[in-house]
Amino acid sequence: MEGCYEGCMHRLEDVPPPTDREAYSWGNRDHWSWSSIPSTLPFNVYQMLSIAVHPEGGGRTLFVSVEGGGASDPWTEGKGDGYLDVFGEDTPSRTYSYDIESGKWTGYCEWGLPFFGQVHYDKELDAWVGLHKAHGYLDGYISSCDIISPTESPAQPAWKFCTERLFDPHTEAMRLYRDTHVPASLAYMGDSTYCLVEVVPQERFKRRRSPSTGSKCMIRLSMFQLKYGKNGELRTTAHRPNRSYLFPKYNEGFQVQAFWM
């Protein structure tokens, strides 16, 4: 949109209500303001693997792990073309940091966080938690990772696997959708409570690619808590019965992103 072909950043913030009587009378009572951030991304948006916010300073530092390089990549300055590289097992991951107050991107380190998608800070575990990735794709596990410093570039942090595999990314349903969108999303609800949201087929779903599957797909929610065991292992507890919801229309471009308010 408007020159943001490689990705742009936007800000949604709560602002004071309008004081002008005419603006109020015309229905402009919304306190929320949506605006763009004039900051050029040092990578192509399609290269993003995971996003994490540092808990210190009110969340002023954002970390983004990507795969491949770009035109403004500080490690390949003047060599990148800004286009999506060919990803694979041998493609290096890199992590960038963004300071919200200064509006500047920094090449943080030449390794990536072990997550795919949104990363959540769990206060009880004092760690980042998210869906684990293997070679750039979901592998069905959840992992936790030590918080990294926003000012120093340390060695790759320690991370832990959850002992239970929550879903199988190699099922037919996952293979159908992995090329167009991520079929699973993790929402954090506080107090180490999480909700896994998946797009799954019904039993009569045909094993073939279709531009529209109608009511043959459903959304499945799985709620649980995460705790560290006696030996420091990450494990799930307090499982609640899964709940599934039908929705009437579905196509390959549809994505489910879960968040908690």
Rank of each mutant, 00 (worst) to 15 (best):
84 L>Q: 04
76 T>C: 08
5 Y>V: 07
227 K>T: 09
143 S>K: 00
5 Y>C: 05
141 Y>R: 10
173 A>Q: 12
235 R>I: 03
226 L>W: 00
5 Y>H: 10
145 C>T: 05
204 R>A: 13
27 G>R: 10
96 Y>V: 10
147 I>M: 08
53 V>W: 05
108 Y>H: 14
92 P>H: 00
242 N>V: 14
126 D>E: 11
21 R>T: 13
152 E>S: 07
218 M>H: 09
32 W>P: 04
45 V>N: 01
160 K>D: 09
253 G>I: 02
159 W>D: 02
211 P>Y: 13
110 E>S: 09
53 V>C: 10
138 L>W: 05
223 M>Q: 14
208 R>V: 13
11 R>E: 12
128 W>K: 00
84 L>R: 04
195 C>W: 05
117 G>C: 04
76 T>W: 00
191 D>A: 11
249 K>Q: 07
179 D>V: 13
214 G>W: 06
37 I>R: 01
69 G>N: 12
103 G>Q: 05
38 P>R: 11
38 P>V: 00
211 P>K: 12
196 L>W: 02
123 K>D: 14
77 E>R: 12
248 P>F: 12
89 E>R: 15
252 E>S: 05
169 P>E: 03
173 A>W: 06
217 C>I: 01
58 G>A: 05
25 S>I: 02
172 E>S: 11
146 D>P: 04
183 P>A: 02
174 M>R: 04
39 S>A: 15
167 F>L: 04
174 M>T: 06
146 D>E: 07
81 D>Y: 03
7 G>R: 01
207 R>E: 08
205 F>H: 15
90 D>A: 06
210 S>L: 14
9 M>V: 07
162 C>A: 06
13 E>Y: 14
105 W>R: 03
153 S>I: 02
210 S>R: 07
233 E>Q: 09
17 P>M: 08
258 A>T: 15
95 T>A: 12
136 G>F: 05
159 W>Y: 01
220 R>N: 11
26 W>N: 14
211 P>L: 08
10 H>G: 04
